[in-house]
């Protein structure tokens, strides 16, 4: 297929530090779904310490181990806060998963009590209750926009949203943000944060296309995203829902 469609710029943040749960599958997914439609997706891989001058339409960041997350927090706040903050304020889309999600809040206090600063894209704080408290691990399903999101979660930190943030989805099975208020993830403008990995986007093609739609709204407001044959995607989505013990109809 020729790339006669619009062009999107995606920054994949810190894959050298933050790819704990194969989160790069999300980038693979967006890349393929653009290519199949003739949309040119220019992926900039931003390693820790790399400069990022060009504005972006989509940001993607995954999860990492505590030590890598500390380095990512330092790099993000010192070097990339400005660029990312300006683009998100201007309507750019974001998918921040797990550890990357935590760093898009105001702060994260990890198991050792070390406080990492975040970018404050989402009005939220994350606290790790300590190494002796069980992690939130397992298949997770939630309701989002009249449909399901399905993934796997594995996090020690508990996230609490402030008045300026709303959850992405409602937990049907699993823990979500904190295992208490049934909220999962956060939304601010076109930015999405979530604890779901899996990789998330391939098995949730409606969410993948939602991100692309939001990113395109700014770049090519007239452009309508052509539908794809998502038979394989929905089979995997439904199979994973069944394995999580959630029936398709609500």
């Amino acid at each position: 297929m020729t790339a006669d469609g619009p062009t999107l710029r995606l920054a994949y943040l810190y894959p050298d530090l933050m790819n704990l749960y194969a989160d790069r599958g999300n980038v693979t997914c967006l890349d393929r779904r653009c290519a199949w439609r003739g949309i040119e997706l220019r992926v900039a891989t931003v390693a820790w310490g790399d400069a990022l001058h060009e504005p972006q339409d989509i940001y993607v960041i995954g999860g990492g181990q505590d030590r890598q997350q500390r380095a990512a927090s330092e790099g993000l706040t010192r070097k990339h806060a400005d660029r990312i903050g300006r683009d998100i304020a201007d309507g750019a889309a974001m998918l921040a998963v797990c550890g990357g999600y935590q760093l898009m809040g105001r702060s994260y206090r990890d198991a050792d009590g070390t406080v990492m600063h975040g970018l404050g894209i989402f009005d939220m704080e994350t606290v790790h209750p300590g190494p002796e408290v069980a992690r939130c691990i397992g298949n997770i399903a939630c309701r989002w926009e009249g449909a399901h999101l399905i993934g796997f979660e594995n996090h020690g930190g508990r996230t609490y949203l402030g008045a300026g943030a709303r959850p992405l989805a409602a937990v049907v099975k699993g823990f979500g943000n904190n295992g208490e208020d049934r909220g999962e993830g956060a939304v601010a403008g076109a930015a999405i944060g979530t604890y779901l990995h899996g990789s998330l986007l391939p098995k949730n093609p409606h969410l993948a296309d939602h991100l692309l739609t939001m990113a395109l709204r700014r770049v090519a407001p007239e452009y309508a995203l052509p539908p794809l044959d998502d038979d394989v995607e929905w089979r995997a989505h439904r199979a994973a829902l069944r394995i999580a013990g959630v029936s398709e109809r609500r």
Partner: peptide, 13 residues
Amino acid sequence: GRRAHDLALRLKY
């Protein structure tokens, strides 16, 4: 396997 459909999706991409 139990996760055959996850594999099919991975191989598609």
